[in-house]
């Protein structure tokens, strides 16, 4: 079998987890390696594996403390290293595109005016920049179904707020090179741009989350009337259907 031909390094995360670092920063080519490696471990789980946590530039393997004896993790590193697939094997060429309607409403509880001052951009310019390009889902984390999307256009990049504030479900927000959507009411330190009426999480559906790592996401600006209309048409059990039709188009 061809060897995994990219840069990687193994690191222990305490006594019950291993991190495989595949690159630096937020980078679409690193994302492909993360996705292919996460897939590889899903198909070939090492002994005692309890969870695979893909993130921006690494894959973390969490083990059951009852199933890793002394030395097991360090012994595993050369074995895992030999078993890594060539990246070509599992990398996919296309990922589903999901269209997300967003009400960028300055009258609502958003940070658009603040952002406009901080970024020296008009509100229409901010909306135009945020909707102009597709994003990738790099990872899910923080809250069930919260997608970390990148890469945010440079003129919109601003480090997160110093203090978290209450966010409502569906809030579309930005921080540094990322944009994301809050699936549920939660405190959050990102800058609020608007809100989507689409559900991102459903405990009663087998799919559970709207997004998967690797997805492509497009934001579309809608007015408050459309927001209300879509919201009334969406049932909370439609994640599978939403994915199948590519979001709200």
């Amino acid at each position: 079998m061809p060897r995994f031909d990219h840069y990687y390094s193994f690191h222990l995360l305490g006594d019950t987890a291993l991190e495989i670092r595949l690159g630096e920063g937020i980078d679409p080519t690193v994302l492909e390696r993360v996705l292919s490696l996460a897939q590889h471990f899903k198909r070939h789980p090492p002994e005692g594996l309890s969870d695979i946590i893909p993130s921006y530039n690494r894959v973390t393997l969490r083990f059951d403390p009852y199933r890793v004896g002394p030395g097991a993790l360090t012994d595993l590193i050369p074995t895992l290293s030999d078993s890594l697939p060539a990246s070509e094997i599992h990398s996919r060429t296309s990922y589903p595109t999901i269209h997300i309607p967003v009400c960028y409403d300055e009258a609502g509880a958003t940070d658009l005016s603040l952002l406009s001052e901080q970024l020296h951009l008009s509100i229409p310019e901010i909306i135009q920049l945020h909707t102009a390009q597709p994003y990738r889902v790099y990872m899910l984390g923080f809250l069930p179904g919260f997608p970390y999307l990148g890469i945010l256009p440079e003129p919109l990049q601003l480090s997160r707020k110093s203090k978290p504030e209450p966010m409502v479900a569906g809030t579309v927000a930005i921080a540094a090179a990322q944009t994301g959507i809050y699936p549920a009411d939660s405190p959050g330190g990102w800058w609020r741009l608007g809100r989507t009426p689409l559900p991102l999480f459903s405990a009663t559906e087998e799919r559970v989350t709207l997004f998967e790592p690797g997805d492509q996401v497009h934001f579309h600006s809608i007015d408050p009337a459309s927001f209300t209309k879509i919201q009334s048409q969406i049932t909370h059990d439609s994640l599978t259907a939403l994915r199948e039709k590519g979001g709200w188009v």
């Binding site: 991190e19 920063g25 937020i26 540094a176």
Partner: peptide, 18 residues
Amino acid sequence: NPMISSAVLFGTVQLLPN
């Protein structure tokens, strides 16, 4: 320095910016 998100575990000791 600020860092991008990665996996955390039970027992992870994190340092917040404040």
